[in-house]
Amino acid sequence: MNNDLDLLLEYLPFLIPLIILQVGLAIFSAIHVIRHPYYRFGNQVMWLLIVLFIQFIGPLVYFVFGRGDRHSRAN
């Protein structure tokens, strides 16, 4: 077990920024999905799942293709 902990410690310089970036992006996107409930297609639950569980491609697809603005919904 001690071995595993050592291993973890050794990789911390990688893991810390990776986790901050990935989780940060996922959370930021999730908040955006909830606060702007306008989508070009799909629904909130779908986008939340995509954004939270598909690492960085999920948020990308959401921001580039899924995010709609209020205006396009009205038309």
């Binding site: 920024p17 990776l18 970036l21 960085f56 948020p59």
Partner: peptide, 10 residues
């Protein structure tokens, strides 16, 4: 900007 910075840092 956000996406490029985050994704390419990762």
């Amino acid at each position: 900007l956000l996406l490029v910075v985050v994704i390419f840092s990762i």
